[in-house]
Design a protein around this nucleic acid. Structure first.
Lengths: 241, 241
DNA sequence: CGCCGTGTTGATAATAATCAAACGCAGTGG
DNA sequence: CCACTGCGTTTGATTATTATCAACACGGCG
């Protein structure tokens, strides 16, 4: 048998990458073992607390990152302070904007977040050599575009009640990717204030609609943050999408 | 001098492509002269009337296209009929979704539209050979993502008045790309009903806010569709973005 | 214990939706 | 030529939804 083995055997793949989701579903899946090794030398794992800004005004960003765990919120703000969350990112999403430095968006850790961060320059160079990497980025960007447009429908045309149900459905289906059927429980990655900014509502309206859903038995609220969904189909129905 | 001349001299570039915006700002800019020639053999120019569906339920789409002129609206619809326009596309935007057939969006001609249409399979093959083409697609997709997120802020956090001003600003800056300063007039590519679906409002509210802007002198309304903007800065101010 | 951050609940106000009517205009046909 | 119709739009009156303002509840923590 050959001394140099194939990918599947993991022989040469950097330790940190072996268990990493980004290698399977994320952008790193486009890279050869050699590229993984050299990228790995320059990459650093970081654990950031909830609330920390990852990309934005203060954080001049000369690096990209993969999300290993946790939830990142993308926010747009108006001059007078009104703000709108324009996207949530989960593992193993790629974090950062290729070819452009600023698009008026800040990215903050919504929960405790673990990222694998690499120098911008290195990725930009790898993109040139590896079309497959650019392909992965295009795929993620298309996915984000679909999600953004889905949410535009939610923001523009749904009632407060439908909005909250849509949000809960979104979280329910993203927080626990390998779920089959039956009851489902999770911790909300966002505060009521964040949820309001995501839905284009006020915190009071969010709160009222949550209690409404609770009283109707669609959800069970444990500790403000812990939510249980006895029947996901019933929740999705309320989101009417 | 060489018999085979460079791109700039246009010698070998297909007639139809020579004056086409898509070759400069659009995706065709990624292609070699040879590729343009072979693509041109398979491509067809089409003129479609306002209201015609370009991509959607009825129109199973095995082709992509470049917009030569006119405005295309991208719409999402809910089961009960509520709908939201999630994007507008202008020349020389690329029309069609790579790698995916359906994303629940329909594309309709909002005005009379001219497109240059090519077989899906041909582009998909060219993408494999020409990383630069995929790069162009990524750039357009990133642009659309930015626009979608900008609009999410509009939908979620702006007042009806700000929304209408935002819409007018958007059209004013896209309909006439080479504009310097001074008054500006244009024909709205959308009906009031479309505008309402774009802004997440009703037609009545759109109409009321338009008259309000008219009475305040921010815009002049000629023939329902014809709008004049004496001072763009003043309009943009109303959009507070 | 008091305080702060977060979330809920209630009363009232503002905003936009809904319902209803009429307008302007283009096309049609007597 | 002039009603007549149909469509997109405007305007008005009223209602519904959500925001705002305000008070309170709960849990953690100095």
């Amino acid at each position: 048998m050959d001394a140099k083995r194939k990918d599947i055997h993991n022989s040469d793949i950097p330790l940190l990458c072996r268990a990493c989701e980004a290698r399977h579903q994320g952008v790193c899946g486009a890279l050869s073992t050699d590229q993984l090794v050299s990228l790995n030398k320059q990459s650093t794992r970081k654990r950031v607390n909830s609330g920390v800004e990852l990309i934005g005004e203060t954080q001049r960003t000369d690096s990209y990152a993969n999300i290993i765990s946790g939830v990142v919120k993308l926010t747009k703000m108006m001059a007078d302070g009104r703000q709108q969350i324009v996207g949530l990112q989960f593992a193993p999403d790629f974090l950062g904007r290729p070819f452009r430095s600023d698009s008026g968006i800040t990215a903050d850790a919504a929960t405790e977040v673990n990222i694998c961060s690499f120098p911008k320059a290195m990725i930009d160079r790898m993109i040139k050599d590896t079309p497959e990497l650019e392909h992965k980025l295009l795929e993620q960007t298309l996915k984000e575009l679909d999600e953004a447009r889905d949410w535009m429908l939610t923001l523009g045309r749904k009632t407060a009640s439908e909005k909250v149900a849509s949000f809960l459905s979104l979280i329910a289906t993203h927080i626990n990717p390998e779920w089959e059927s039956g009851p489902l429980s999770f911790e909300l990655p966002l505060t009521r204030s964040d949820i309001a900014d995501f839905l284009g509502l006020t915190i009071e309206t969010v709160s009222r609609q949550m209690t409404k859903l609770r009283k109707e038995g669609v959800i069970v609220i444990r500790n403000n943050r812990m939510v249980e969904v006895p029947d996901l189909a019933r929740l999705v129905e309320r989101a009417s999408a």
